[in-house]
Each structure stands twice: as C-alpha cells, then as structure tokens.
Amino acid sequence: MNSSPIFKIANGIGLVLLFIIFAVPFVWMASTAFKSLGETMTFPPVWIPETLQWQNFVEAWNSGPFLKYFVNSVVVTLLILILQFATIIPAAYAFARYEFPLKNFFFALTMICLMIPSQLIFLPVYLNLSSWGILDTIWGLILPFATSAFGIFLLRQSFMQVPEELLEAARLDDASEWQIIRKIMLPLAKPVLITLALFSFIAHWNDYFWPLVMTTTDQARTLPLGIAMLRQVEGGAAWNVVMAGNLLLVLPILVIFFFAQKHIIRAFVYTGVK
C-alpha cells in the first residue's frame, strides 16, 4: 500500500468523513431528544442543548399507552423466538438426517417460503387472520412468524456438517434421537443458534409493517407503532419528543449491539455468506 504522508492524510480525512456520514445522524437523534422545542427550530442548529430536557422522554412515554406497547413488544418478540426454535430444530434435523418419501417436496416448499417475503402476501394473510378472529391480537403478530424457512435452511446446513461417525458413536452409546439432538447437534450448532436468535430478535423488535397492518387498537400494538404515532400528534410533530421516543426504541438494540457487537456482525454476515 501507498504510505506517503499525503495518502495518509487523505485516508484519514476519508475515514472521518465516513464516520460523520454514519454517526452524525445518531448524534443528531440523541441531541435532539434532549432539546427544548425551541431549540429544535433554531438556526444554525444547536448541537448541545442548553439544559437536558429529560421530560421529553416522559412526554413521549405518556403520550400513549407505552407500557402496553412495551410489554407487547417484549411478549411478541420472545414468543416468536421460542416458537421458532421449537419448530425449526426438529424440522432441520429431519431434513438433514432422515430419508423419507416426499422429503424433497417438503424441502422445496420450505425454500419457496424462504424466497417469498411476507410483506408481499400481507393482504390475504390479513383476511385470513380476520376470518379466524385473531386480527388485532398479539397472536396475529406471532403465529405467521412461528417458524422460519431461513432458520430451517441455516440449521439444516449446520446439522449436515456434523460427521456421520459422531452420530454412529452416539448410537453405540445408546443415545436416543432426542439425546443426539440435545447433547450433540445443538451444542455443535451453537453459533448458528445464536445467529438466528439475534437475527430474529432484531427483526421482530424493530418490525413496523406487520403490527401496522395487523392491529387496529392499542391492545396489540407494539413499540415501533407507538413511536411512529408520536409524529401524528395534532399541531405537527414535536421533533424533540419524537426523537426521545425513538431513542427509547433504539436503546435496547444499541445496548445489545454495544455488548455483542462481534456476535451480531458475525451473525448478519454469516447469514449473508452462507
């Protein structure tokens, strides 16, 4: 690589610019969240608020049933995670390790579901949920995601990589199928399981589209919806309150990202590379 001083300086400037492009929006979000309403409309923009307006957060939280939204978000995300693991693991194992009639057909079906984004078929799903009477309940947000074609695909891949001899050894050791899964397969697939959990958590914690379409009242709404509604208050959006709300939404993810950054990045990249 070129290591002349000019190149080094240019490289440094480039890195700083890049950092500004990706970090400044967040800094802006954080700083706005603490501004007074007046400060949000001044020119030139204020970067550091005069006094930290903590009541923006209170105002955001109190502008709707945020406790309900929060609880819904947590319940929906966790239940999706649990159900996904409960359905993905046996399916991936069967696809990876058994031969049975129509196996290829069922696997192809899974792959089709992998290629179809749920955002494309929300309308008929909405109609179905409505005729089954679970529209506007958290089940409407959970059940369509109770399994994951992507998860089955990834986990099957990882199960198939376990050498045959290991399973033979386990069978000589009198292990049942369930013990083989629990004691041998799952520990070996741990990176994939972590990947799937992080991936799924982030996707469903952040999801806006599905709750928007499938809920009509506050009883099943989740946090992203509540945050989005902050903007629709009468008399135009108070950006400081909106940003305070957003900070509340982003914070859990940012905290997780801060502590598990390597894992998360690896998880997403892993899903990309495989």
């Binding site: 290991l166 050894a169 292990a175």
Partner: peptide, 26 residues
Amino acid sequence: IAMVFQNYALYPTMTVKGNIEFGLAN
C-alpha cells in the same frame, strides 16, 4: 459392541469425562 473410529469421533462439545460418561449415562 464398542467401536473406535478412524478419526476418533469424540463428542467435541463434551469433556473427556463427558465423552466416557455419555454411554453409561444413557
């Protein structure tokens, strides 16, 4: 029957003790 495999087929996520114990526990 007990078998010793060419590449050992040890359970990679268990300790030596766990490997020996697995069959007994089962």
